[in-house]
Design a protein around this nucleic acid. Structure first.
Lengths: 286, 286
DNA sequence: CCATCTTTGTGCACACGTTCACAAACACAT
DNA sequence: ATGTGTTTGTGAACGTGTGCACAAAGATGG
């Protein structure tokens, strides 16, 4: 099946009337930028197998997109192909790397060295793409001093000094949700202008700072949605009549709901709601 | 800044001419589905603070979107608000949960218990949203038998039996990239129809199976792209003239490149290419 | 040098997503 | 009851992304 286009808005806070960023400062659409790393990965694999050239069709298959899209994407970068032949692998690797800014070194700090922070610190794909872990930081004294992936875990207090001295512009937040905004503020204050947030929180940042979000829980919920649909496709779900009734009936229902809600009761004819479940993922954000 | 709309195509393989899924089987757009978990999170937070009702404006702020979008999103679910008042928090929590299929239990298997697998096993947001870890699986005998998050790590051989007996329909892949497709095939064969893939690989699956992908490396690269742009906005980058020249000049350049590439030399006037770097993230996929 | 074949680059049409802006609906006070 | 204020729900306009289909560009062989 493979859901057609999912548009998981990984970046957040489009800021209503704000900055008016046309998303293509020099003409490269966001959607294209998001696919460049995919192409790059496929191309480096080809490069390692010493394949000299590749057609849009082949590369598209390897990257999991269709060839027209790929060609259009590349056309935004310039005309790097040769008609009748295809694309020169090495050259394209270089061009895409350059476009993505991977020909330079990006020092990164990871804040919050729990399970996930550990996993990221050990992530091999880091170094191979120009990213270098400048420091691992944590607020917990029992964690500080441990080492992960050959690097010592240092205390949050050193954050500002590290960011400044190593010119860190990218920060990764893997703290529990409660600490995320605070950490974010400190990172930004220290000079970080791009943040990758793994904590399930909406971060507020000043203009000029980019935030991208990775949220396991959301991904699973989206899968569940489609899974449910597949399951329910044959078995017509017992859709409550009230819920989809129009006009006055609905209004009455709303009134009832509000009355019930005020007493903090169960949602009308709702499932048991499993005892005020909620955002309490004190364990780890992931 | 906050990049406007990022469309990180988290799901993959739209399959060119295939199935023609209008992405809205019962009328809910993909983009909306992807935001429902966000709303749900904000709503449960309000619910815990016993807030009875919330306006689209407030909720939108809490979820990090704009209010018009939120209202339109909700309008796809039905008319669950009350004009002049707002939305009943409890009721909306229930409606969204139901829509997302979270009122039922989703057993999940995690395959590949490295650093990341561990992190996910310990992830608190799992259980609180109807997801239950049915089993942790790994192929490495030295890992099998360990326990993570109170669950024993079991051997891959048990995969089929577990999926079948526990009716698992969602699988999470956190193996190294080399093993991902193989694991994926086994999961699908065993009956799993939704896969969350953390390995940096394009998975091929039969029709009817959903794949979503989470890729740290890609997220960082996208950040780097924007970071580079910010940096280069004042300092006009020394863009090679050749690269953007049109027509015949370019053709000649292409010819040269191909000649160079055949000998697997450096890309024309390229950076040192740091010794056949590449996909070799044997450490962990993340 | 010409004919043929392959593959790129792109104009165009359409689908999807976002935002505006406003009428309809409801609450509440008088 | 009626009027006033608030907030939803949505039509319509716009912007972005996708995919088709084809002309143009180059390769290749004779």
């Amino acid at each position: 099946m493979a859901i057609g286009r999912s548009t998981q808005s990984t970046s957040q806070t489009p800021e209503p009337g704000a900055a008016r960023r046309p998303s293509r400062a020099r003409g490269i659409p966001e959607a294209t930028v998001a696919r460049l790393p995919l192409y790059l990965r496929a191309l480096t694999a080809l490069s390692e197998r010493s394949v000299p050239t590749v057609s849009s069709e082949e590369l598209a298959t390897a990257a999991g997109v269709n060839s027209a899209k790929l060609r259009k994407d590349f056309s935004y970068l310039g005309s790097y192909g040769t008609r009748g032949v295809g694309y020169d692998v090495e050259y394209l690797v270089y061009q895409i790397s350059r476009e993505l800014g991977l020909t330079q070194d990006w020092p990164v700090v990871i804040v919050g060295i729990g399970n996930l922070g550990h996993a990221l610190a050990n992530y091999g794909g880091f170094a191979s793409r120009g990213f270098r872990v400048a420091a691992l930081l944590d607020a917990d004294p029992t964690v500080v001093g441990n080492s992960a992936a050959g690097l010592p875990v240092r205390h949050m207090d050193e954050l500002e000094a590290i960011v400044e001295s190593q010119h860190v512009s990218i920060g990764v937040i893997t703290t529990p949700p409660g600490a995320a905004q605070q950490v974010c503020d400190r990172l930004v204050e220290a000079g970080v202008t791009s943040i990758l947030n793994f904590a399930p929180t909406v971060l507020t940042v000043p203009d000029g700072v980019d935030v991208r979000k990775v949220d396991l829980s959301i991904e699973l919920q989206i899968l569940a949605f489609h899974e449910q649909r597949k399951a329910g496709e044959e078995a017509g779900s017992g859709d409550s009549v009230l819920d989809r009734a129009p006009g006055p009936v609905r209004a009455a229902a709303a009134k009832l709901r509000r009355a019930a809600g005020a007493a903090k009761a169960e949602p009308v004819k709702g499932k048991p709601a499993k005892g005020t479940e909620g955002e309490r993922s004190a364990v780890m954000p992931a």
